[in-house]
Simulated scan of single mutants.
Amino acid sequence: MVIDARLCILVVDDNEDILQLVSELLTAEGYQSLSAANGEEMYAALTQQRPDLILLDVMLPGRDGFELCRQLRADPESPPVIMLSAKDQEIDRVVGLELGADDYIVKPFGRRELIARIKAVLRRSGNTEGRRAQGVYCFDGWRFKPARMELIDSNSTVIPLSTSESDLLLVFVQNPQIPMSRDRLLAMTKGRNSAAFDRSIDSHISRLRRKLGDSAKAPEIIKTAWGAGYQFTCAVDLI
């Protein structure tokens, strides 16, 4: 399968061998590849060209990948992020996802796994613009603009969403009142062949609830449907 050569991926890693290996793999797969060894070089690259995706190592000199991911997520126009790390503890994965990473890959990883994860994230972001640009969804005093990945509250305050959060909320507003299992949510947001963590949905929903002001202990907008998954309870209007 020939991949659109215009798709650009920025690889941020201070290990020169990994940087070269991943860059060569991306080029062989038809992507345009950019490289950076630290946060400063990453931001310098971003001033020159906006990539479609960033592969971001956690253990970097100076500002680490977690801090850089947090900073990137403060910009609603930032590209999706896949974190790369030798840290394989669950807490590290959760921290990465909580900070807004779209996926988290543990080193060492195989060629096929990396490309599959990249394709899945690109499919949910840069390659899904047509699906995302579907007007404005209104519910419970909120407005949701999937094309811009934004939530707007009743005071017109704009709350940026990550790619994963926006994709998940889009599934909910298009399927209100319907209990959705984790497997179904994963399939509808990440694709059936995705190798993403099957518990990542829980982290994304926790972040969505916080941004919606939905109580973690007694949520009213995204309720836990015991034995079934989750249910979006609000009536939704599309304008």
Rank of each mutant, 00 (worst) to 15 (best):
V2F: 11
D4L: 06
A5T: 11
A5M: 07
R6W: 00
I9E: 01
L10W: 08
V11G: 02
V11P: 03
D13R: 00
N15S: 07
D17H: 15
D17G: 09
I18M: 11
L21E: 12
V22M: 08
S23W: 00
E24A: 12
L26S: 00
T27C: 09
Y31K: 03
Q32F: 10
L34V: 06
L34Q: 14
S35D: 04
N38A: 06
E41N: 03
M42V: 07
A44P: 01
A44G: 04
A44W: 03
L46G: 09
D52M: 03
L53E: 09
I54N: 02
I54C: 04
L56C: 05
D57I: 12
V58H: 00
P61F: 05
P61L: 04
G62F: 08
G65Q: 02
G65P: 03
G65S: 03
F66D: 06
F66N: 12
F66R: 03
R70Q: 13
A74L: 15
S78M: 08
P80M: 00
V81C: 01
A86Q: 08
A86L: 07
D88T: 08
D88N: 10
Q89C: 07
E90W: 08
D92M: 05
R93F: 13
R93Q: 15
R93C: 12
V94S: 05
V94G: 00
G96D: 01
E98M: 13
G100W: 03
A101S: 09
I105C: 03
G110Q: 14
R111P: 03
R111W: 05
E113Q: 15
L114D: 10
I115E: 01
I115P: 01
R117I: 10
R117H: 14
I118T: 02
V121M: 02
R123S: 15
R123C: 03
G126V: 08
N127K: 02
G130F: 05
R131Y: 14
Q134K: 10
Y137M: 10
C138E: 15
C138W: 11
G141D: 08
G141L: 05
W142F: 13
W142A: 11
F144K: 01
K145I: 14
K145N: 14
R148K: 12
L151E: 02
I152F: 12
N155Y: 09
S156C: 06
P160K: 14
S162D: 05
T163V: 14
E165C: 11
V173G: 14
N175W: 02
Q177D: 11
S181T: 13
R182Q: 13
D183R: 13
D183L: 10
L185W: 11
L186E: 11
T189N: 12
G191F: 00
R192W: 12
A195H: 12
F197M: 04
R199A: 12
S206C: 10
R207D: 02
R207M: 12
R209P: 00
D214V: 14
Y230P: 12
Q231F: 04
F232E: 07
T233R: 11
D237I: 07
I239Q: 14
